[in-house]
Amino acid sequence: MPEFLWHAVIAGSMVGMIAGPLGSYIVWQRMSFFGDTLAHSALLGIALGLLSGVASGLAVLICCALVAVALVYLRGQSRLNQDSLLAIIAHSSLALGLVVVSFSAKNSVDLSAFLFGDILAVTRADLITIATSVVICGVILWRYWNKLLAVTVHPELAEVEGLPVHSLRLTLALMVALLVAAAMKIVGVLLITALLIIPASSAGNLARSPEHMAIIASVVATLSVLVGLGFSWSADTPAGPSIVVAATLIFVATLFAGPAKNRAG
């Protein structure tokens, strides 16, 4: 197996592991459009990186983190239509990113690699960045799991009981931004949310507790990444779509395998 494929496999597995618990939170909090908006703004980050000469990974992280902070702040503003607001930020940043990238075409940027992922793209330096991001998210999730869960179950109850609800929400949003930056090269900006949502939903069909769901989602996400990368390598298909197709097949299988709890209740 060539070295670049090893890079993709290791990076993909790390991303898959952390996509399980983070994806579960996104499903529980119905934040999928929020994840989409962050992912779309990643392309604007790439474009700004190209313009300013900042390394693309760092530029994406900064851009996503700023958008995450803005979205958490705007969430509390009841005057704004949240749904439209997310759509406006998502699509305008994607469009602006595409326009800016096409201006700097001399740098021979492969747009489809950013949009759909590329197994050739993961370098040794990327591996270190991704590992760092995954460890940071993992430690935070481990340390604050119960508090994040309490905020997810009932934010107001959590606030009355003295939890810093706003900070916890911000932490969650920044972790999603970190994951978007880490997963972008493998899955591509257009399909990152799918890697968060689909494995978590598959796990939701099987799980009996929140922790159980997060672990199953990690396994499903990692498996999807590995199967998708294998297929992408052997059949020369784009990496991101191959991964998402694998995740979707697993999801369909869990629909038939799951306990009847949700349907009965």
Partner: peptide, 28 residues
């Protein structure tokens, strides 16, 4: 020390939570 009983639960049904686990989420 305030104990608050909200009007309803907004929890998404996709979150698999037993009554016991819900109670163990209480702070202090």
């Amino acid at each position: 020390r305030v104990g608050y009983m909200p009007q309803r639960l907004q929890t998404d049904p996709s979150l698999p939570l037993t009554v016991m686990r819900f109670l163990k989420l209480a702070e202090q």
